[in-house]
């Protein structure tokens, strides 16, 4: 089954994302910030990364930029979780190489729908 790296500094969001995806049979790895996520991603290639934007140490946008530069993540879907209603954050994310975004707040069904779409 596809593996997903869920990155969020908020434990409750991470748990929710992880619980939902695991419930749907995905293999989920959690990380609390960009640095941790990047280390995991270098170590083990995952099929999808879902990351929050605002995080300590390394934010989601920098994480996406770093990941996209890794050869094994050239085509990997990288999604960001964003609450920003402004288009600005999305644009920054896109510029960094994000595939798309999931707008917070979302419910588990919306999350699964998006993930299923991306992972086919």
């Amino acid at each position: 089954m596809a593996s997903i790296l869920a990155v969020d500094d908020s434990a409750s969001m991470r748990q929710m994302v992880s619980f939902t995806l695991k419930g749907a049979g995905y293999d989920v790895i959690e990380a609390a910030d960009g640095v941790e996520a990047l280390n995991i991603a270098r170590d083990k290639s995952v099929n999808l990364v879902i990351t929050d934007v605002n995080m300590p140490n390394m934010d989601g946008i920098s994480l996406i930029r770093e990941l996209r530069n890794l050869p094994s993540y050239k085509f990997t879907p990288l999604l960001m979780l964003t609450t920003e209603s402004s288009a600005e954050k999305k644009q920054q994310g896109k510029a960094a190489g994000a595939t798309g975004w999931i707008v917070k707040p979302f419910n588990p069904d919306q999350l699964l729908g998006t993930v299923k779409k991306v992972l086919g």
Partner: peptide, 9 residues
């Protein structure tokens, strides 16, 4: 984070 979580939950 509080805002995002509160919305989601």
């Amino acid at each position: 984070s509080i805002k995002g979580g509160a919305g989601t939950f």
